[in-house]
Design a binder for these strands. Structure first.
Lengths: 211, 211
DNA sequence: GTCTATAGACCGATAGAC
DNA sequence: GTCTATCGGTCTATAGAC
C-alpha cells in the first residue's frame, strides 16, 4: 500500500526541476521587494504586481499567501546560515555560538522588512489553527535550543558561571532580542535602539558572571 | 474662529451620556469575550455576534474595528491601574515601581487573550500608516519612561548601582517582557515559561549590581 | 506543465431608510 | 438610535486556454 501525496498544484510545481527553480525565483523576488519597499502587510495581489506576475500564478507555486510568506522566512533563514561572512563557524560545522547569535540579530536589524515579516507572521501564528503555527513554534524552539547549547559550551570552557540555567538564559536572550526588534521597528528611525548592541550587552553580562 | 470637531457618528455617540455608557458596555463585553474565548483575530462580525448585536451597530460607536480594539486596550490599561490589589501604590500616587511592573506582567500573563490582543495590535501598528501607530508608540514609550523613573528612584535609594543607564535598562526590561509574552503565547500551555518570574529574575539581577 | 480567467465567500466600511 | 443593503476589497478554488 503506497501513500499518495496530496497532489496539489503547488506540490506538483515543486516536484519538477523547473518548477523548483521558478519557486525559488519568486521567493528571492519577494525578499528583494521586502528589502526595497519594506513589509507592509501587502496583499498577495500587491506582492504579485511587484513581481510583475499574476496573483493566481503565484498560487500555482504556493498553496496560499501564508505558505508563500512562510517559505520566504525559511529561505531567509537558510541564506543567513549560508552567508560565509555571517556564519563562518556554521559553515565549518563548529555549532552555534553566542557571538554568532549577536551577529544574526545585527543582520536581522539591518533588514527591518524581513524582521517585521517574521514578527508579524509569528504574531499571527499564535493562533493554533494558523497554518504556520507549528513552523513558528519549531523555529523559536530551535533558536532557544541552539542558544542553550552555546551557553553550555561556554560553561564547559569556563566563560560562563556553571550555576546559570542554560535553557532559562536562552529563553531570556531570545525574548530580549524579539522584544528589542519590536521596539526598533516602532521607533522613528531606531536612532537610540540598537538591538544587536543590547543583546551583546546581555551576553557580556552573562559572561560577567551575574546570575 | 472655532474649530469644529469631525462630527462622525462615533464622535456624536461618545458625546451623549447614554452613548458613552453604551460604548463602555460594548468594550467590557469585548473584554469578557476575549477573557472567555481568547483573542483569535476575530472579525468585526464575529465579535458583534458574540455581543449579540449587528456589526454595523458596533461601527456606530467605534470608527472601525481597529478603533474598537484600541479602545479595548485603553480600557484594559485603565482598569489595571485602578485595580487596588494590583496597584495600590499607583492609587496612592507613589509612582511607578519595578515590583509593580512585575505584578503587571503577571496580571497580563493571567489574561492571555488580552496579552495576545496587545501583541497582535502592536505588530500591526508597526506600519506607520496604521491608525493605532501613534497610540502604540506612545504606550510603549510611556512604559519605558515609567520603568526608567522607577530605576532612578531605586538608584537614589541605593538599591541599584548608580552606573546603570536607567533608560537602557528600562528598554531591556520592557523588551524582555514583550518577548517572553510572545513565547508564552506560542508555548503549548506555557508550562515552562513564566514571564513574570523571568522578569522578576531580571529585576533581581539589576538590583544584584550586575551591569 | 504553465498560466489565465472567473466565481465564491468573507472582510471592513458606508449610505440611507426608518 | 437602529436597522438593511451594498460597496470595493481580500484570499481561495476551480475550469480551461495555451
Amino acid at each position: 500500500m503506497t501513500t499518495t501525496s496530496p497532489d496539489t498544484a503547488p506540490a506538483r510545481a515543486a516536484a519538477s526541476a523547473k518548477g523548483a527553480a521558478r519557486r525559488e525565483k519568486i521567493l528571492r523576488g519577494v525578499i528583494a521587494i521586502i528589502g526595497r519597499d519594506g513589509y507592509r502587510q501587502q496583499s498577495l495581489r500587491e506582492l504579485a504586481k511587484a513581481l510583475e506576475m499574476e496573483a493566481q500564478h503565484v498560487l500555482y507555486y504556493f498553496a496560499s499567501r501564508e505558505d508563500l510568506l512562510r517559505s520566504v522566512i525559511e529561505l531567509w533563514d537558510k541564506d543567513s546560515l549560508a552567508t560565509p561572512d555571517f556564519a563562518p563557524e556554521f559553515a565549518q560545522g563548529t555549532g552555534p555560538s553566542l557571538d554568532l547569535y549577536v551577529a544574526a540579530v545585527r543582520r536581522s536589524s539591518a533588514a527591518p522588512g524581513m524582521s517585521y515579516l517574521y514578527l508579524s507572521f509569528a504574531a499571527d501564528a499564535v493562533v493554533p489553527t494558523h497554518p504556520g503555527h507549528d513552523f513558528i513554534r519549531a523555529r523559536q524552539a530551535r533558536v532557544r535550543r541552539d542558544l542553550a547549547e552555546a551557553i553550555r559550551a561556554e560553561q564547559a570552557a569556563g566563560m560562563i558561571a556553571p550555576n546559570i540555567d542554560p535553557l532559562r538564559a536562552a529563553r531570556q536572550l531570545s525574548a530580549l532580542s524579539n522584544g528589542l526588534q519590536l521596539q526598533a521597528l516602532l521607533d522613528p528611525d531606531g536612532a537610540d535602539c540598537d538591538p544587536a548592541a543590547e543583546v551583546a550587552a546581555a551576553v557580556a553580562r552573562l559572561r560577567g558572571g551575574a546570575q
